[in-house]
Design a protein around this nucleic acid. Structure first.
Lengths: 157, 157
DNA sequence: ACGTTTCCCTAGTAATCCGATAGGAAAACT
DNA sequence: AGTTTTCCTATCGGATTACTAGGGAAACGT
């Protein structure tokens, strides 16, 4: 009965951290997978697979060979955290494996669907508005930052 | 690379729906597991385990025997959806299996922690404010309902 | 051309989890 | 007693998670 709930997977976490490392490096310099891996403490062969997803998703471009590596495909302020998570890990929010609009409830549970929709909309609003540039520069938007100012937000239960 | 992201498990979904069925039945009448299972289309032996969690979590009281069954331990307007999910499924939001406050990031990822905290705070704000009574009566709070009025909230990507 | 570097691709794997099932013991009722 | 229903433990196949291994393909420097 422990550790489930809405979890952000290691893949998603690693993907965002790798993208942040690229954002911090700048649009011109490219980083090698191994450099990112050791900077962020991510298993480098695992990270290689994730970077492949980011490239296939069009968020990152790569170059092989001696001066090779990865760099962002677009400016860091045009890539939202939600983009990275979706490319690396699939849909942001799902209920029982399917996305909310595909669900159907009956009886007293009928209003559950709008509730899940509301939760998803809210998660989107945050992760879709915060960009790599925001996080890399440690300057979160004000409305997001204000959520973290309530001490209650940092407590466990 | 499909269907991951922040998912609400079948356990959590089933738990909430079962609790809603109990809320709709009223504080005095008790429902048998089998009745809830067939009303909501939930495998009944699986549901039995979930109802056990709800009982151990103090959300539900049970009675065995001929006139037995389950009923809510508290009024439906004092039980939040978040309570049900936590009891059945563990912490609401976790990153890589651990809860946000236990994480530590370095370098350009340092501001990721406040971001996860903000996401969690926001999910809490919704699921902690909406009660079983709200959903069972199909009367979600206004601020939650307003999130669902944007047609964008119902679209896939 | 050659060798190095680095990305890229396919498999594989051990552990865990998820959703579900089975069989029966314990308690409450008629 | 006998029925009903909760309660407990144990198990299951399959999927997922988080990695690891090994090598092929491209870009570079010399």
């Amino acid at each position: 009965m422990d550790n489930r709930g809405m979890r952000i997977s290691a893949r998603a976490d690693y993907a965002v951290r790798a993208a942040l490392e690229l954002a911090a490096a700048g649009d011109d310099t490219s980083l090698k997978a191994e450099a990112i891996a050791s900077a962020q403490g991510i298993p480098h062969k695992f990270l290689e697979g994730i970077l492949g997803d980011l490239r296939r998703g069009g968020l990152v471009v790569s170059q092989r060979g001696g001066r090779g590596g990865y760099r962002l495909a677009r400016p860091a302020d045009s890539i939202a955290i939600a983009d990275v998570i979706r490319v690396a890990d699939g849909p942001l929010v799902s209920v029982r494996g399917v996305r909310p609009p595909e669900l159907s409830y009956c009886g007293p549970a009928e209003s559950l669907l709008p509730l899940w929709i509301a939760v998803r909309a809210n998660v989107r609003k945050i992760l879709g508005a915060v960009t790599l540039a925001h996080v890399a520069a440690a300057k979160l938007p004000d409305d997001v930052l204000s959520l973290t100012e309530d001490p209650e937000a940092w407590t466990n239960p």
